[in-house]
């Protein structure tokens, strides 16, 4: 592995471990009764937000995210503390505790909890950026389940019709909540954008370097007047859909865990450095949570 590739991978590894640690901590907080409502974690899908957002220009490009958006927020430059505080319903959160897990906005980051609903909104943002001549590209993250929503097809059509600078980043984890893809979708799911003439790249969404390379190419094409792009990234959600209640076979999950993005990246890195990094990030996230809890107790 060359030095540049190694630098990229170490950076991606740190980001993916941060996402993984935050998500695991949120599930623990839920179990402790310190979170209310719901959380949808992206455990096992860390490569997609990490690789895609690394291909974006902060301040110029825009991310539209969904219910499973913590990883997108962290990968797009959002800080862990205000995110965790937000999800804990704390007034120091990124949206003062009003938005919560699924409704977060900061700078050029927007998320909402209606599946597929952000597709036309993101497309409108791309239209605005194109008309303003900002050179900005919009990335909309959506899952395979959301592809069944009608507005996603409407957005594909409009984005292609008007050749808009948008990347639809599909995180295909094989399940819509508890329903496997085969029970929900007819036809070839990865080809959904093809009738509109949108270029589609299907790839292994657990290979962070591959995701990054594909995203760079797709974002570059969108920015260069190539119109909308689709990345169809195959992955697997290792955690439950939300906070528990996972009907999948544990053996199946364990099999996928071996192929998850973090162990895959780790195989190309120094194991000692990885261990040190894991511990450092775990301590940082634990300190953040402890800080929020202490402030909450002090305020009571």
């Amino acid at each position: 592995m060359d030095a540049k590739r190694n630098d990229l991978l170490t950076g991606f590894y740190e980001k993916m471990v941060l996402i993984n640690t935050v998500e695991s901590s949120l599930l623990n907080l839920f179990a402790e009764g310190l979170l209310r409502g719901t959380v949808h974690t992206c455990l096992g899908q860390e490569a997609i937000p990490t690789g895609v957002c690394a291909a974006l220009e902060p301040g110029r490009d825009i991310v539209c995210s969904n219910h499973r958006g913590h990883g997108h927020f962290l990968a797009f430059g959002g800080e862990a503390r205000p995110l965790i505080a937000e999800i804990m319903g704390d007034a120091s959160g990124v949206c003062r505790g009003i938005g919560g897990s699924q409704h977060i906005q900061l700078g050029n980051f927007y998320s909402n909890g209606i599946l597929g609903g952000m597709s036309p909104v993101a497309t409108g943002m791309a239209l605005a950026e194109k008309r303003k001549g900002s050179g900005g590209v919009v990335v909309q993250f959506l899952g395979d389940g959301a592809l069944a929503e009608g507005v996603v097809s409407e957005a594909f059509n409009m984005a292609a019709l008007w050749s808009l600078p948008i990347l639809f980043a599909v995180e295909s984890n094989g399940f819509a909540q508890s329903t496997p893809t085969a029970l929900e979708h007819a036809g070839k799911l990865s080809a959904r954008g093809a009738p509109y003439g949108i270029p589609i790249t299907e790839l292994d969404g657990n290979d962070v370097l591959a995701v990054h390379a594909a995203a760079q190419e797709a974002v570059g094409a969108a920015r260069g007047a190539g119109g909308p792009q689709i990345l169809f990234m195959n992955t697997y959600r290792l955690g439950p859909h939300s906070k528990g209640d996972d009907p999948r076979d544990p053996a199946e999950i364990a099999r996928h865990a071996e192929q998850a993005p973090i162990p895959r990246a780790r195989a190309g890195l120094d194991p000692e450095w990885c261990d040190t990094t894991d511990h450092r990030i775990a301590a940082e996230v634990a300190a953040i949570i402890q800080g929020i809890r202490s402030a909450r107790i002090a305020a009571q």
């Binding site: 036309p120 909104v121 497309t123 409108g124 791309a126 239209l127 605005a128």
Partner: peptide, 11 residues
Amino acid sequence: GLATGMALRGL
């Protein structure tokens, strides 16, 4: 929805 996105970005 398209119009909402446009409005959020200054149009």
